[in-house]
Design a protein around this nucleic acid. Sequence first.
DNA 1: CTGTTAGCGCATTCAT
DNA 2: ATGAATGCGCTAACAG
Lengths: 345, 345
Amino acid sequence: MNSVPPSGSPGSSGPAAPTMRDVARRAGVSAMTVSRVLKQDERVNPVTRERVLAVVSELGYRRNEVARNLRLGRPSGMIGLVVTNLANPFYSRLALGAEQVAEEAGLRLVLGNTAEQAQRERELVEDLVSRRVDGMIVVPAGASHRHLSPASLGGTPVVFASRPPSGIEADTVLVDDFGGAREATAQLLAEGRRSVGFLGNPPALFTGAERFRGYWAAHEEAGLTPREDWVRRGPHDIATAEAAAMELLDREDAPTALFCTNNRITLGAYRAVRRLGADIALAGFDDFEMADMLGVPVTVVSYDADEVGRRAARLLLDRIEQGADASKGQARRTVVPTTVVRYGA
Amino acid sequence: MNSVPPSGSPGSSGPAAPTMRDVARRAGVSAMTVSRVLKQDERVNPVTRERVLAVVSELGYRRNEVARNLRLGRPSGMIGLVVTNLANPFYSRLALGAEQVAEEAGLRLVLGNTAEQAQRERELVEDLVSRRVDGMIVVPAGASHRHLSPASLGGTPVVFASRPPSGIEADTVLVDDFGGAREATAQLLAEGRRSVGFLGNPPALFTGAERFRGYWAAHEEAGLTPREDWVRRGPHDIATAEAAAMELLDREDAPTALFCTNNRITLGAYRAVRRLGADIALAGFDDFEMADMLGVPVTVVSYDADEVGRRAARLLLDRIEQGADASKGQARRTVVPTTVVRYGA
DNA sequence: CTGTTAGCGCATTCAT
DNA sequence: ATGAATGCGCTAACAG
């Protein structure tokens, strides 16, 4: 599918990048000496060093890191980042956080977007292993993740982010989906909104299931049981959320509040509330700008998406440093905390 | 299916990934035959092929693409993407667009974030060249871009995105900053808002300068001259934009409309308008959700950020295919169009 | 201090 | 249809 070979140069190959030998020849030394100079090896005659450096800059020579890594038996010095949807700000922040940590360790990030397609994920991961990445961070797409086990990856360390692996053990960074949803829902209930509807992610998605669990738990702790007919687990964008909210709110026994599983859903619900002019309180996962300017009470579950990426990268770096023993040791799981923020009406 | 990695030495280095020779030995053939099988070379005995493939799957062997590319004298099959701020949705969409096109060509994306620091950009670019990327897409940060010329990059093709290079010629993809700003401002003027303030980016930024030019041009075309004291080029986030807008609007001779150079500025201005309860029309670059629900008239300059990334990637692929002749041929410049959308009061 | 030898994993060329 | 030699660019390990 995507195995189109990288385009070589069909025509006249341009002036090939100079090699160490080119530098060596021009400086009247051996390649080894050039190598030593570039490696900051102290035991090189200062005069020789200067001469070499002069030629290096004259020729615009750059050490070929690819060949270097090969010779040193090292991986590529890159880590793979496989996300499901880079257009989602959550994942671009995650990428940013991961990039920061990787950068500090001198590692580069190779990006892949799966668009939630398990098949693409498979190919991507395969390709990254073939490129000898040091490790990878994956937001898993499909249901089965056996193809992501260290074994089938030839030992390349993997860290899961945002969603846990199923069927295998591996380091994982999650958001406190359950706790955040529970706290936000509890907030609504505590404010006297006793009938809270649910709008959002399908249960097949880990985050969807967890947030629904939290919504439910908050009710139980308040001695309540949510009404199933106030639960809508279909909407996935602003438009469908708006429609679902309209349908939920525009009737006799409508709920007096809604819990939404992400900010797109919240925005859709908000539109419905505005159109109906009803006194409905909103709560939702994901903070967003303007939440305080909406004119209706909004409770938001906020968290640091960058931190998810940073932690994932740190876990991965740990594994990478462990080398062969990476597969040993317990899989670690860390949960990034959430904060519930209440914006006044 | 189940691969049992050979138990490695108890020391440090884990079970090294199997090589072609390992496969060859186990299959009782030469490495060359394995290579041929993996290359889909037809002239291999079908029986031999099957035997080899069996061992490949048994050992979980993966061809080392790094070594392969080195041997073939090819670059790494990756393209570098250097952006100034991945947290900005514009750039994450750009990345997504570039990834799509790269993916189709079988190329991977290597990501780097400069945080607008020229020094980081320099290092990043240097590193990418050393890693032998096929080419790179850069949103340039500093003022001088000579370090990004094909010459100082050893011939690695570069495409500029969002901002043009200064001092060198290179393929570039821009957004119609001028046209969009002009049209949005003209819209305000046509609606009878004859006094339009300006809020936004410093002129040092290309986009800031262009959008200001557009703002100015719209006035001239209407036979007007903007009042300098209605221009605020300092604000860079919501808070500072809100403050600047407050200061601009809360006085006798306040403008009746504001043009904002990006959506963060627009949101800040909106906050000020809401707080003052004044009849102020807003126009701004960048579309955003909820623009139609703000309760004040808002005109927005919308454009396809993915398209910027896609076009940049296509230009780059062109250059890459040209091979040595990449430096030849005119630098091409393409401008992604903008659409002005008017959201009712 | 500096050079020579050898080889990382793979594929081209030339053999058989 | 298959294998042996050779080298991509680089560097550890040994000379000297």
